[in-house]
């Protein structure tokens, strides 16, 4: 007998409309509103043991406190599966359903499912981490959506393999999973080419993203008065690699003294980067980080000063999240030191 806890807002919880959107978190024994439908669909396979509820305004204004209170209520009860909503196209409700589904799944380790209309703002915020069944834009879609949510939830509870978004009816989570195809990649390549050459419709297996554009920082106004920092993704570190900079898939970065590199060069510094042949750089690190030339140019007054530290990480197969975090952390460091511009070398 599957024990389900169900989340609804004030409206579906039959407390009231907009006038009751400020009600704080509460728990009710048994099903309320759409929870009755859950019980009817499940028959003797399971039932809604409790309904947790919060007003949409209260949740959006006190998200952290509200979701924590709800989480405590859920955690205090025996539960096999958490279902939120569905929220259809209701924006605040969608965000609440997304947040609760995510927290219950991640923090309580329970299988959790919600449902939303694809344009609900909760979809973009939460689709990556959770299963959101695609619904219509109004509650008219309830009888269609709820069975799908329950079906997916039961299978998550049973740790059964979950198929693709189209087959299962959930909104794509931006995740790609390795699967075994019936044909080898080489055979699929020939099939695909013959289709493309015949001019019949074909489907690529890899879609390239269009990454975000950052508006350019203003140019260095006066180079002669500028402090320039050297940064590299080339994994150049002291021989003993004191900060354990990874040779690939870096999560760390470090800073070392430019003066040490200038004084000792290849005797003391080596690249740990695994993505390229490091022989030439390890012969002469200036080939990666142009310290010799930068010191000359500083002396000649082309720019005012070379920032005394160089910053280093390894740029090979780094996850975007790590790359962004490392970039932000380095940027903070450089901004605090009033660095005017950065020369970044990569391999």
């Amino acid at each position: 007998m599957l024990r389900i806890i169900h989340y609804v807002n004030q409206f579906f919880g039959q407390i009231g409309g907009e006038d009751k959107a400020g009600v704080p978190p509460m728990v009710i024994d048994g099903p309320v509103g759409p929870g009755l439908l859950i019980d009817r669909i499940l028959k003797d396979r399971g039932r809604v043991v409790a309904t947790v509820l919060c007003g949409d305004n209260y949740f959006s204004e006190e998200m952290e406190a509200a979701s924590q209170a709800l989480l405590d209520m859920i955690g205090a009860r025996p539960c096999d599966l958490f279902i939120a909503g569905p929220a259809f196209n209701a924006g605040r409700y969608g965000i609440a359903c997304g947040e609760m589904t995510r927290r219950v799944q991640d923090e309580l380790g329970l299988p959790a499912v919600t449902g939303m209309f694809p344009e609900n703002p909760g979809v973009d915020l939460y689709r990556k981490g959770i299963y959101i069944i695609e619904t219509g834009n109004t509650a008219v879609g309830m009888p269609k959506a709820m069975p799908k949510m329950i079906d997916l939830g039961i299978r998550l509870f049973g740790r059964e393999p979950i198929g693709g978004p189209e087959a299962e009816g959930y909104l794509p989570r931006g995740i790609k999973q390795n699967v075994l195809a019936s044909k080898s990649a080489a055979e699929r390549a020939v099939d695909l080419l013959l289709k493309k050459m015949k001019g019949v419709p074909f489907r690529t297996e890899i879609l390239l993203p269009d990454l975000d554009v950052v508006s350019p920082a203003p140019a260095v106004a006066d180079l002669k008065g500028a402090t320039i920092a050297l940064v590299t993704e080339g994994g150049l570190v002291p021989r003993e690699n004191p900060d354990n900079i990874e040779s690939a898939r870096a999560s760390r970065w470090a800073k070392y003294r430019v003066a040490d590199l200038a004084a000792h060069g290849a005797e003391e510094f080596q690249s740990v980067h695994r993505g390229f042949d490091t022989v030439f750089v390890n012969e002469d690190p200036n080939r990666l980080l142009p310290v010799d030339v930068m010191e000359d140019l500083e002396r000649e007054g082309v720019f005012k000063s070379l920032f005394p530290d160089f910053l280093v990480t390894t740029g090979v197969a780094t996850t975007m999240d790590n790359a962004r975090r490392i970039g932000r952390e380095m940027a903070r460091e450089l901004a605090l030191a009033n660095v005017s511009g950065v020369l970044l070398t990569s391999t």
């Binding site: 699967v179 195809a181 297996e205």
Partner: peptide, 13 residues
């Protein structure tokens, strides 16, 4: 296998 010996591929989830 970058030359396609294997059956592995990716599918959206």
């Amino acid at each position: 296998s970058q030359i396609g010996s294997n059956h592995l591929t990716t599918e959206g989830r």
